[in-house]
Write a protein that binds this DNA or RNA. Sequence first.
DNA 1: ACCAACATACATACCAGTAGGTATATATAA
DNA 2: TTATATATACCTACTGGTATGTATGTTGGT
Lengths: 206, 206
Amino acid sequence: MARKTKEEAELTRKKLIKSALLLFSEQGVAHTTITDIAKKAEVTKGAFYWHFKNRLEVFDAIIDEYSTPIEDQADVMLKEGQDPVESIFNTVEFFFSKVESSPELIALYDVSYFKCEYTDEFASRLKFEQEQLLKTKDDFAKVLAKVEASVWPNKSDDLIEQISMSMVDMILGTFMRWIGSRSGSLTSQVRDSMAIVLKGAGIKFN
Amino acid sequence: MARKTKEEAELTRKKLIKSALLLFSEQGVAHTTITDIAKKAEVTKGAFYWHFKNRLEVFDAIIDEYSTPIEDQADVMLKEGQDPVESIFNTVEFFFSKVESSPELIALYDVSYFKCEYTDEFASRLKFEQEQLLKTKDDFAKVLAKVEASVWPNKSDDLIEQISMSMVDMILGTFMRWIGSRSGSLTSQVRDSMAIVLKGAGIKFN
DNA sequence: ACCAACATACATACCAGTAGGTATATATAA
DNA sequence: TTATATATACCTACTGGTATGTATGTTGGT
């Protein structure tokens, strides 16, 4: 009812974002009302509309708040002096172990995969994620290009492209299934999956 | 306004189902109104509610109408006198070539992956699909168990389990990405993906 | 004093579901 | 075969509920 300090206002904003994420994960994006979000955050609709224009904006805010784009890790992968295969493993494992230990990140991907309809204003979000997949593929390709021929006898540009894409597909499939079932260790499942692909490529490692 | 014959009634039912599928794919399940569906089928809400109880029921009807469960093909895979690896390839390629050539099936999986929120009544659908994945894994495992040790030196029960799961994950990831982007040939991409997994398993083929 | 940070109340609109009617197909009896 | 009864396949009109967004009020920070 009264005016809050800047810190308190930022706190209600964060609370609204977190409430929205949890509700989206429970009830789906389209099935969650603004009043639901406000109630969970212990404020009213007025507060929501003060901080956000509509549902789409809080959706974007959720992503800004919680998601850690994997492409930030591309530089790490490409760092000199590292074994390429090992750096891929490390990067991917770093990402997924972070997801596995964060309920908010799990909720975020749960929403992304199973609780959101990518139409209208949300369609751009889907397009973005598709582009991210191809970007990740390119990053993998760059790193795989650095693998020495001694450990990869049948290495070729075409194979690099194909393996990079398959790597992304494999990780995506494993991740999505895990988010849906949440059984077993995500990190180790992803690690095993990656190992199979790299072996299938003919790369010798470990 | 007048009563239709049984065949005509069945025809409007089919038209309602098809309209619902296309609209779901365009606008999402939750964002499509019953009136939308009726209008596209050139009838009124009355007709819709005569044939279906609500949105969930037409969703189920869509699946009954168009989906061809992959598990029906398990028996084909397990048929005697066939090379196990080849039968896996054939079965999977048969399924995906069918999807690739059918706009309705593409729309169906587009809805499943990107245009539906799996909450409330729809949650059971997600659970079912998760179970299907595990069932498919088991089918793969059964077939892989028949692979001769001469072409699979490091064969083991644990490896069979792991490879079966990875196969499912790989196919899922490839399929989902293809549905999202629809670039290139689905069938050949899936074939290549599978080949990598089988090679990664240490199976010699072709 | 003024504006940020909300709360309250409300206008608007839409949407699911239903009640009741209607005209014909179809089953049944004669 | 024909007359009749009844179920079927819708359409129209309406209700009740709900959600979005806004307009306005309130109060305490700065």
